[in-house]
Simulated assay, not measured.
Amino acid sequence: MKKKIHIEDKKCVLCGKCAAVCNVNAITREGKRMIYDEEKCISCGRCVEGCGFLAISYC
């Protein structure tokens, strides 16, 4: 079963590191939010590990 991630908007500072490390472009910035595309995600965990603000976690 594929793991899903959650981006906590209150912790996210919109630095874009999560999007930069995502090899499948499953995270993009839209306005003042980072948006996660579950269909593109391959559950590699690079975004979770790359977020220095602990704004991304598995749910």
Rank of each mutant, 00 (worst) to 15 (best):
M1C: 11
K2W: 05
K2I: 11
K2E: 11
K3Y: 02
K3W: 00
K3F: 08
K4N: 14
K4H: 14
K4D: 14
I5H: 01
I5E: 05
I5F: 05
H6S: 14
I7L: 04
I7T: 12
I7S: 06
E8M: 14
E8V: 08
D9P: 03
K10G: 03
K11D: 08
K11R: 14
K11Q: 10
C12F: 05
V13G: 06
L14M: 06
C15W: 02
G16H: 08
K17C: 09
K17G: 01
C18Y: 08
C18G: 13
C18R: 10
A19E: 14
A19W: 04
V21H: 01
C22F: 07
V24M: 01
V24R: 06
N25V: 08
N25S: 09
A26Q: 06
I27D: 02
T28Q: 04
R29Y: 00
R29L: 04
E30A: 14
E30S: 08
G31M: 10
G31K: 13
K32V: 09
K32M: 05
K32E: 15
K32I: 06
R33H: 15
I35R: 12
I35F: 03
Y36K: 09
Y36E: 12
Y36C: 13
Y36D: 13
D37F: 09
E38C: 06
E39W: 11
E39T: 14
K40G: 06
K40A: 09
C41S: 06
C41H: 07
C41A: 01
I42A: 05
S43K: 09
S43R: 09
C44A: 05
C44K: 10
C44G: 07
C44H: 12
G45S: 00
G45C: 08
R46W: 03
R46L: 10
R46I: 00
C47N: 04
V48D: 03
V48M: 03
E49W: 05
E49V: 07
G50N: 06
G50V: 08
G50Q: 01
G50I: 11
G50W: 04
C51A: 04
C51E: 09
G52H: 03
G52D: 12
F53N: 15
F53I: 04
L54P: 00
A55Y: 00
A55L: 03
I56T: 08
I56D: 00
S57G: 01
S57W: 00
Y58C: 13
